[in-house]
């Protein structure tokens, strides 16, 4: 029972990720000119309720979808250049699951569960942003000209801008959403 339940639960999380990546409004909050993703929250929830390995799997699937979409249906002009590198598109997403899972394991027995869940949300979301932009910097530093026709020196400020707008706001969303969603789900799954 336990094994089959986990197998189907994993599959359903993959289904949720599939829906969130394709239906606008469920995976992305369009706010002004920005499009903020809440998919890291799903990955973090998977890590918390199913376990670290499963969180990594769900994150990896999200990365794979991004990777495949970069070839067939790119979501932004930049995606078709950077996400075709799996180290940019897949690896950071796997690590969201790992980081969130490990932090949850350390802190699940402590008293201030809600606060810790917020911190896990922030850490998980920031893992994604920092690693993704870091990878873009490492791999495309010399190629910035081809990327956005901006010169090499401009890539770092550009990435920092993305970080301070998208990255910090996404982390903020994760801080708010993670405890509010995780607490009832933890109660539900531990029944």
């Amino acid at each position: 029972m336990k094994n089959n339940f986990k197998l189907v639960a994993r599959a359903l999380f993959i289904a949720i990720i599939l829906i969130q990546t394709t239906v606008p409004g469920l995976g992305y909050l369009p706010i002004g000119p920005l499009s903020l993703t809440i998919i890291p929250v799903t990955v973090i929830i998977a890590s918390i309720t199913l376990g670290t390995t499963d969180g990594m799997l769900i994150g990896g699937i999200w990365g794979l979808i991004t990777f495949i979409r970069a070839f067939f249906w790119p979501t932004s002009p930049l995606a078709q250049y950077v996400f075709i590198n799996p180290l940019v598109s897949v690896l950071p997403r796997i690590l969201i699951g790992l980081v969130a899972g490990i932090t949850y394991k350390w802190t699940s027995k402590t008293n201030h569960q809600k606060i810790w869940l917020s911190i896990i949300g922030a850490v998980g979301s920031l893992t994604n942003t920092v690693l993704l932009l870091g990878m873009v910097y490492v791999f495309y530093n010399g190629y910035a000209h081809e990327l956005y026709q901006i010169d090499t020196k401009a890539l770092l400020p550009y990435l920092l801008t993305v970080f301070s707008t998208n990255g910090l706001l996404e982390a903020l969303i994760a801080v708010v959403l993670t405890p509010l969603i995780a607490v009832p789900l933890i109660k539900f799954t531990s029944k």
């Binding site: 339940f5 986990k6 189907v8 639960a9 599959a11 359903l12 999380f13 289904a15 949720i16 929830i45 309720t49 509010l180 969603i181 009832p184 789900l185 539900f188 799954t189």
Partner: peptide, 11 residues
């Protein structure tokens, strides 16, 4: 929340 809960129920 209902989406996750319903997924767990399906599972």
């Amino acid at each position: 929340i209902p989406l996750f809960i319903s997924s767990f129920k399906h599972a």
